[in-house]
Computed example of a mutant assay.
Amino acid sequence: MMLRIYLLLMLISSNVTAQQVSTVKWNETDKEKVQNLKWDTKKVAKGIRVKTVTVRLFDAPQEIFMLDIDTAKAKVDYSVGMADYMEKTSVQAVANDAIAAINGSFFRNHAEPLGDSRHLVMIDGKVLAKTDSAEFETRGTGAVLVYNNQVDITNWSREKEKKIAGKADHALTSGPLLMDDEKMVDLSGTPFVLKRHPRSVIAFNNGHLLLIVIGGRSENAAGMSLDEVQFFCDALGCDDILNLDGGGSSTLYVKGYDEDDIVNVPTDGSERAVKGIFYITSQR
C-alpha cells in the first residue's frame, strides 16, 4: 500500500514538473500568430495605449497585457521608484502620481533582510541599493537607465555598476537581459529560464517603450519560459528586451483603466507587495 502511494506521488510530481517546464519549440505558425495578433486597445493619453490579447501560443493558452508608449509622441517623464518597505505596485504608483507603472526587479522574499532589493536602484542620481554579487552572473545582466528623460535598455556588469555615478538620473538592474541592440542573448538552461511563469518585461520596439506582463499559473494562462518570452518579443519586432521580477510580483498598473487600475490578473489573486517599480508621470 505504501509503495503504491509513493509511486502515485512520484507520478503526480513528474506531471507537475512536465507542465512547468516548456518542451514546446516555437515555429513559423507561432511567429505568424504574434505578428498578426488582434489586440484589444484602449487609449490612455497621447501616444500611450493599453493592449491586451488572449491567444494560444507555444501550444498553450496565453494572456498578454501591454502598455505601449510611443516615446516620440507621449508627453511623459520616466522614473524608477522604491518603497521604504515592500508595498503594492499600485500603491507606489499612486504615491508617485503615476499614469502607469510596472513592478521592478528582484528582492529578498525568503532571506534576510526581507524586502531588500537584490539589484541596483538609483533614483535622482542617488544609489539606494546595489546588485548582489552573485546576481551579475544570473539575473543582474541588464539595466534600464533614464538620463535626461531618455530611456535606455542595456547590458550590465560589475564594472558598469561601479561607474554608474553621474551616468544616469534613474537606474534599475534586472535580468536576464534577453536582447541587446537586436542581438539575442544566449540563455543558460536553468529552471528559471526553462519553466513557465508569469513574466514582467520592459522592451523597445522601433521607438515604442513596451511594459509587458504575461499571465500565468492558471487555466487561461500558462505563462512563458524566458526563451518563449525572447521569441515572442522578437516576433513583435523588439530590439531590446529586459526581464523583470515575475510570478506573483507581475503587475501592470494604469490609472483609470478599471476599478482597481490593474490591467493584468495577478497570479496570487491580488497584488503582491514589491520593493520597487518603473513608472511614468505626466511631463512637468
Rank of each mutant, 00 (worst) to 15 (best):
L3G: 00
L3Q: 04
I5L: 13
Y6N: 07
L8R: 06
L9Q: 00
M10K: 05
S13H: 09
V16K: 07
T17L: 14
Q19I: 14
Q19P: 01
Q20V: 06
S22D: 13
N27P: 00
E28W: 08
D30Q: 08
K31D: 09
E32S: 14
N36E: 11
N36H: 15
L37R: 09
L37E: 09
K38S: 06
I48L: 14
R49C: 10
K51R: 15
K51M: 13
K51I: 05
V53Y: 07
T54V: 14
F58N: 08
A60Q: 14
A60C: 10
A60G: 12
Q62H: 09
E63R: 15
F65Y: 15
M66E: 09
M66L: 14
L67Q: 04
I69R: 04
A74K: 09
K75Q: 13
K75T: 04
D77E: 11
S79Q: 12
V80K: 02
M82Y: 02
A83E: 08
A83Q: 11
D84Y: 05
D84G: 04
S90K: 10
S90H: 07
Q92N: 08
Q92T: 06
N96R: 15
A98D: 08
I99P: 01
A100P: 10
A101C: 04
N103G: 01
S105T: 15
S105G: 14
F106Y: 14
R108G: 03
N109S: 15
H110E: 12
A111N: 09
E112C: 00
E112A: 14
G115H: 06
D116C: 02
S117E: 11
M122P: 05
T131Q: 10
A134E: 12
A134V: 11
F136T: 08
E137Y: 12
T138P: 00
T138N: 05
R139Q: 13
G140D: 09
G142K: 02
V144A: 10
L145P: 02
V146W: 01
N149I: 11
V151W: 10
I153D: 06
I153A: 03
I153P: 03
T154S: 04
T154A: 05
W156Q: 07
S157M: 03
R158H: 11
E159I: 08
K160E: 14
G166W: 07
G166S: 09
G166R: 09
A168V: 11
H170V: 03
L172P: 05
T173H: 05
L177T: 07
D180Y: 15
D181R: 13
K183P: 06
D186C: 03
V193F: 04
V193S: 01
L194K: 14
K195A: 13
R199Q: 12
R199D: 01
I202E: 05
I202N: 02
G207I: 01
L210Q: 10
I212Q: 07
I212V: 15
I214T: 06
G216D: 07
S218H: 08
S218P: 03
A221H: 04
G223S: 03
G223A: 05
C238L: 03
D240M: 04
D245G: 04
G246W: 06
G248I: 11
S249H: 05
T251M: 06
L252C: 03
Y253S: 00
Y253R: 01
D258S: 13
V263M: 06
V263C: 04
V265G: 02
P266L: 01
T267E: 09
D268Y: 01
R272F: 08
V274G: 03
Y279M: 10
I280S: 05
Q283P: 00
R284F: 07
